[in-house]
Design a protein around this nucleic acid. Structure first.
Lengths: 331, 331
DNA sequence: TTGTACGCGTTATCAT
DNA sequence: ATGATAACGCGTACAA
């Protein structure tokens, strides 16, 4: 910046003023000076240094979206919404990925160190209330996609896992099924997801015997593992006639397993999933699923930016997503 | 840091020394002082400020992976490799997403402003040689996944799109097909991808008439659009008996379109894709595809880190990926 | 309309 | 074994 100033024959202050944009509607800098400075900037290929700017302004003008894996389409539209909203407000979006506990803790630490002004957490196993409080205390705006996380000043997105699973069971019962299996994943002590509970309650209500298989959360990420699990279930003597998979991902692998055993879907076994991911419309048979439709995260994004601009209440707010049962050809 | 120093009764310099880890094998700091400082840090919940550290050290100890969309599984394992390698070396990984030209340019700018020390570019339409040169000039280590990008000091990952497409055609011809269509996407002037060229050359070699449909690059991201495109092709009077889709994504939608028209895959129409994404194994029929197997990006990751540590040659290096034809049940 | 001077929170050099 | 001091590059209150 000093070099630019020197070349333009002005002081560094003037350059800074021009770049900070505060001179935009201002009458501070003369058109002539301005032109000379811009010229010098172009000539020297100058770009302001973010670290210095952040240090001085005490904000980064960046936000982060924290996910546990790439390649999961459910949060793709959230990322899009966040990025669009961020750009409109002069922020930029970065994505942070953490799968293992160690990775997630490392990411939390970089967040603490002031990497961004605001962060959006998707449902992550190793992030706890205390972590979120630490962040808000450090002045970071936080929104979390979770049914159980709760911390002062942290806004939450809730999702109807309980009701969704109940609807799924009701749907299959309506279709005449009585042996309905549930394939989900093990949660930690706290069952934040509630899909398993919804399944159990609905089965009980219908007087049906529950039949649950829970894979490890880590394995939930692996198509191979779910395929094998489905295969095992479908080979049992008491083979169910309906399978509810806790994710569309899993449901698709389950359909593959069924077909490989010579079973027709939905005639011999009905399969449904959760999430309404784009893929669910383009597998054959297309997948009956419980999920958002359309997938619009705007309210959640707005919560984050209202916190960033400081006009959000001190207490937490909640936005509850809606999930519908979308009937297609797999049930 | 001053607060910590005060509480521990030492100078700020000492605290810095302890935190920078330089005292590790050193006899500089006495065990006693060290303990007092750590105690104070814990008590005050102190975390060092990244912006200040970056400003002073002139490096961020961060690297970035630049992709054009979430939810595309092809680069998931690259992200994993990068993150693992980064953590081993004390770096952290952030993901940058840019789909539209405007977004990609904005991301390039934040990169220029010193967001990271090194960046890995996946094949992006609006990033050009000049952009990469600008970055290297700014001291950023750059590796690019691209067949045509080339800039001094930028390492590249090449992929065999040409040969891959030729193999695809050969495979279908061997299976007895003569009407083979290619569904790809429009590239900019420069055809960096080479899959179209490979298809054309192989068709010519076999004395077959090419039949290509190119969707807009933007539409390539949309399953709906590719589904419709496939539908249109399969409804033509001169319906092809084999379709090569430039991505597994597209191939899966093509299979759906075929099945919706009552066509059996592969008996009535054979379909194949590119990429060998995990999903390709778990759709039914499973997908014949041309792609890496296993998907191992280690050499590319090593190139980036050797640049970061400064022991890389000034000129560019190249690593050429291998793609195999993986025959499954869709052909 | 422009310039001077200071501080943001670190690390690094040097002196003690 | 520890401390004083000077940058790193920028934004802004205040003076001119």
């Amino acid at each position: 910046m000093v070099d630019v100033a020197k070349l333009a024959g002005v002081s560094q202050t003037t350059v800074s003023f021009i770049l900070s944009g505060r001179s935009a509607g201002d009458d501070r800098i003369s058109g002539d000076t301005r032109a000379r400075v811009m010229e010098a900037i172009a000539q020297l290929n100058y770009v302001p240094n973010q670290a210095a700017r952040s240090l001085r302004k005490q904000r980064t003008e960046r936000i982060a979206l924290f996910i546990d894996r790439l390649g999961a389409p459910y949060f793709e539209s959230l990322a899009q919404s966040l990025q669009t909203a961020a750009e409109q407000r002069g922020y930029s979006l970065i994505l942070l990925v953490g799968k293992s506990e160690a990775q997630q803790r490392r990411v939390l630490q970089t967040l603490q160190q002031g990497l961004v002004d605001g962060a959006f957490f998707t449902s992550l196993r190793n992030v706890h209330n205390a972590d979120l409080s630490d962040l808000t205390r450090a002045g970071v705006a936080v929104v979390a996609y979770s049914n159980i996380l709760a911390a002062e000043g942290v806004d939450c997105v809730h999702y109807p896992g309980l009701e969704g699973a109940q609807n799924a069971v009701d749907h299959l019962v309506r279709k005449g099924h009585r042996e309905i299996a549930f394939v989900g994943f093990e949660h930690s002590v706290d069952d934040q997801d509630m899909r398993l509970q919804g399944y159990l309650e609905a089965m009980h209500r219908h007087g049906l015997k529950p039949d649950t298989t829970l894979v490890l959360f880590e394995d939930w990420l692996s198509r191979e593992r779910i395929y094998e699990t489905a295969l095992a279930i479908l080979k049992r003597p008491d083979q169910p006639s309906g399978i509810i998979s806790a994710s569309d991902f899993g449901a698709i692998c389950t359909i593959a397993a069924a077909q490989d055993l010579g079973l027709r879907v939905p005639q011999d076994v009905a399969v449904m999933g959760f999430g309404n991911i784009p893929e669910s419309r383009f597998v054959r048979p297309s997948l009956t699923t419980v999920g958002p439709d359309p997938l619009d995260f705007t309210p959640a994004v707005d919560m984050l930016f209202s916190r960033l601009s400081g006009n959000a209440p001190a207490q937490s707010r909640t936005w509850r997503m809606e999930w519908k049962l979308i009937e297609r050809n797999s049930t």
